[in-house]
Each structure stands twice: as C-alpha cells, then as structure tokens.
C-alpha cells in the first residue's frame, strides 16, 4: 500500500515526552511513532464522528491532517461535536476544528477545506493524503468517499452512527471489499434517517469516531490486523460490538474486476432517490 513516510520525526525537545506513552506500547514504539509523524490523513466531516477522530489522530502524532466540511456550526451539533467550542457557533466547522487542532498541537500541519466533497474534487483531494476517514453524515457522500478511495487507491475508514451505535468498515482498495461490495446502491432517503431525524447520543459517536482513529492509526503505523473485510457493529445500548466477515465482490460496480465507476467520477452517481420505488 502506498503509505508515504515523508516527514522526519523531530525527537528533540518535548516530543519524546509528548509521545512517551505511545512509545511504551510495544507494537507501536519508535518505528510506529515515526511513521505516524510522517503520515497524513484526511477526515471528511467535522461532526459527531469527525470530532473524536480528529482529536485522537492529532493526539497520536499524525504529521498532517486535512479536514473537509461544508457546514457551519449549529447549536444542535453540540451534544456530540466535541471538537468545537461554544464560541464557534456560526463558523465553518472545518475552520473551527482546525483551530482546535492547532491549539492542541502547535506543530501539526492542518489543512481546512470549508467546502463540500464532490465527485469533481474528491479523487484529487484523496491523492494528497495517505488515508481517509469517512466521518460524514449522509449516504451520497459516504459512497463518494468509497469510490474516490478506490479510484485514488487510498485506504478508507468508513463509519456511520445513529442513536446508540454505528458501524465501521475499513476499505483497503485491492486488498478487501468496499461499501459497494456489500450494498451496491446508495440507500434511498426514506430508508436512511440521519442524526437530525433519528437522534444520536454523543457518546455513541465518540466510541465509533475514536474507533475510526484507532483503525487509521493502525493502518498508518503499519501495525496489527486492520478491520478490513469485517463490518463492525457497535450497539452501545446493549453494550455489544459484533463483527461480520465481508468478502470482495468481483462484480462490484466500484472495486470489481470490471468496475462501472471509474475516473472521472460522475456527479450523477451521488444523487439520492427520495423514494424506494426504483
């Protein structure tokens, strides 16, 4: 996989101390820490999932983090979107999140994109990062993340949350299944309630978003078995996490042997039907 380690770790000063508890973890150690420092990740969405994912990625010592989000912060976001201070109400979430990250990690290279991820810009943007975290809040964008990751050949940590839990799937193009292997078409809107309709307990987004950060850290540090090919489902009300083996589908429209979806991605592939009568 094309993970690039292009930033030299500066072990001087306080960094040895800042990351000392990472270094003590045998599987990670100096080698893993240097890889994290030399790697970059793009987080799509600075909301319920993106908030914990961004904070833990920064805390782990990732060298460069991009955050893209086209929304402004609203007061209804604050039960879960813990990266944003109250004073950010009305600001672009991408800018607000970037400011929090800079305050937390003055040495971190942060790139904020206060705009929508689109078929026209996704692949080029994904190519600028080693890995992508799908922390967005709607199916068209989740499927766009999937397809752009497959085309750009970047590992993607997908997740979705609602109410008390959510799902997570790591997509490593060429090495395992993608979202469309499991469900080829974008679910219609009536079958796809979002947090604004069905609600979400913030801590549930915290669990799944932190799990996304964990999977990205493993991918970028090159440690552990990733969750690729395993759909993780977290039900925090029941207190359960289960995993389900998923295989790549050779007829998948995105990552199959003869994919229908290819570069350049078409905006028409990311429109969501309002009814189920297809």
């Amino acid at each position: 996989m094309g993970i690039r380690y292009n930033i030299t770790m500066d072990w001087s000063g306080e960094n040895t101390l800042r990351y000392s508890r990472n270094l003590l973890v045998e599987e990670l150690g100096e080698r893993g820490q240097e890889r994290l420092f030399g790697s970059s990740v793009l987080v799509v969405g600075a909301g319920g999932l993106g908030s914990p994912a961004l904070l833990y990625l920064a805390a782990a010592g990732i060298g460069r983090i991009g955050v893209i989000d086209f929304d402004r912060l609203e007061i209804t976001n604050l039960n879960r979107q813990v990266i944003h201070p109250y004073a950010s109400l009305g600001r672009w979430k991408a800018d607000s999140a970037a400011d929090t990250l800079r305050a937390f990690r003055p040495d971190l290279a942060v790139e904020a994109y206060p705009r929508a991820l689109k078929a026209e810009n996704a692949v080029a943007l994904f190519r600028q990062y080693d890995a992508v975290v799908d922390a967005c809040d709607n199916f068209p964008t989740k499927y766009l993340c999937n397809d752009a990751a497959v085309v750009a050949r970047r590992p993607l940590v997908h997740a979705g949350v609602l109410r008390f839990g959510g799902q997570l799937l790591v997509v490593v193009p060429g090495q395992g299944p993608c979202l469309r292997c499991l469900i080829p078409e974008i679910p219609p809107r009536k079958d796809a309630p979002g947090c604004s309709e069905a609600g979400i307990v913030g801590a549930a987004a915290g669990i799944v978003g932190a799990w996304q950060a964990m999977e990205a850290i493993k991918l970028l540090a090159g440690i552990g078995p990733s969750a690729k090919g395993r759909l993780l489902t977290v039900d925090a009300l029941a207190g359960e996490a289960t995993r389900l083996a998923v295989a790549r589908d050779p007829s998948c429209p995105s990552c199959g042997d003869r994919p229908r979806i290819a570069e350049p991605l078409s905006p028409a592939d990311y429109l969501q039907e309002r009814s189920c009568n297809a």
């Binding site: 909301g47 979705g160 959510g166």
Partner: peptide, 8 residues
C-alpha cells in the same frame, strides 16, 4: 438484513 448506518 444488513443496511448501512448513515449518520455522522
């Protein structure tokens, strides 16, 4: 019947 969860 498995479906994806869409929120974020």
């Amino acid at each position: 019947i498995v479906t994806f969860v869409g929120g974020g």
